[in-house]
């Protein structure tokens, strides 16, 4: 007999089986978002805008109303939703190809308008769904299926730091970069996600949490090796931390 339930599936997850590979961090981040939505009691008024990429089915995985945007356009779709129904909580879930490449204009302008939405940005330095091609966030020297000799700055430019770039914009309320490689990091990541949603609930403007994530399949590494590679390489180029926090000023 069960005396006490210590962990269960968050109500904000639909229970549909995830389509993610073993060791991929999408699943962890999905759960954290769902827990935050539960804790804030906003499930019944939350709308998700899923991207194009591995997380294209994200709108099916959450037990909330939602849609899937054209590639990169989630911030514009979310803008339309939020402007039409400002009482709803609207968040986008986007990968690096979606947010930092094809959707650069949409994310920059949504952030710059101080659009009162939340974006969860998964940065795994590679295009996952299409089979491991170079992303704008791919590290220098990193081999992908379109940089077989390693990413060369002369040909492909440099890995783009979105959190830093967006943090220069005045409309932003909260930006933090986190990772979910250890239990401690997971706790920190959840706090960041919660803070981002809270910023939206308070109407403070645009909030974004960038989560450095693994892609063991396309990196050609085991889940454990992938976690280690992330910490040793990605976290060095993409420093963790809070980039913007206007939540205190607002209080």
């Amino acid at each position: 007999m069960i005396d006490k339930i210590v962990a269960k599936m968050p109500e904000s997850l639909s229970g549909k089986e995830f389509t993610y590979c073993p060791g991929c961090h999408h699943g962890i981040v999905h759960r954290l978002i769902a827990e935050v939505i539960d804790e804030l009691g906003i499930r019944e008024k939350t709308l998700i805008v899923a991207p194009v990429g591995c997380s294209v089915f994200a709108y099916e995985f959450f037990n909330v109303d939602g849609t899937v945007a054209p590639h990169g356009r989630a911030p514009a779709v979310a803008t339309g939703m939020k402007r039409a129904t400002p009482d709803k909580i609207v968040f986008t879930y986007q990968g690096d190809g979606d947010l930092a490449s094809i959707g650069t204009a949409e994310i920059v302008h949504a952030a710059n308008r101080g659009e009162n939405i939340t974006t969860i940005f998964i940065n795994n330095a590679v295009y996952g769904m299409t089979g491991g091609q170079m992303a704008p966030t791919t590290l220098l020297g990193q081999k992908t299926t379109t940089t077989p000799y390693g990413r060369d700055a002369k040909a492909n430019g440099y890995p783009i730091r979105m959190s830093e770039m967006l943090s220069t914009l005045s409309g932003v309320a909260y930006i933090e970069r986190v990772m979910v490689t250890t239990p401690q990091n997971v706790i920190k990541a959840k706090k960041a996600i919660k803070k981002a949603f809270e910023a939206q609930i308070k109407g403070l403007g645009f909030s974004l949490v960038e989560v450095l994530s693994t892609c063991p399949t396309n990196w050609g590494k085991s889940p454990v090796e992938a976690g280690k590679w992330l910490e040793e390489n990605m976290a060095k180029y993409y420093p963790l931390g809070v980039y913007v926090d206007r939540t205190k000023e607002a209080e």
Partner: peptide
């Protein structure tokens, strides 16, 4: 009502997409 000048026509149509999802005339 709400008027928003989008950053492009690409963004415009996607804002309409989002607004229309909520059931409002756009």
């Amino acid at each position: 009502g709400t008027f928003l000048q989008a950053e492009s026509e690409v963004a415009t149509v996607n804002m309409m997409y989002g607004a229309s999802c909520t059931g409002k005339r756009v």
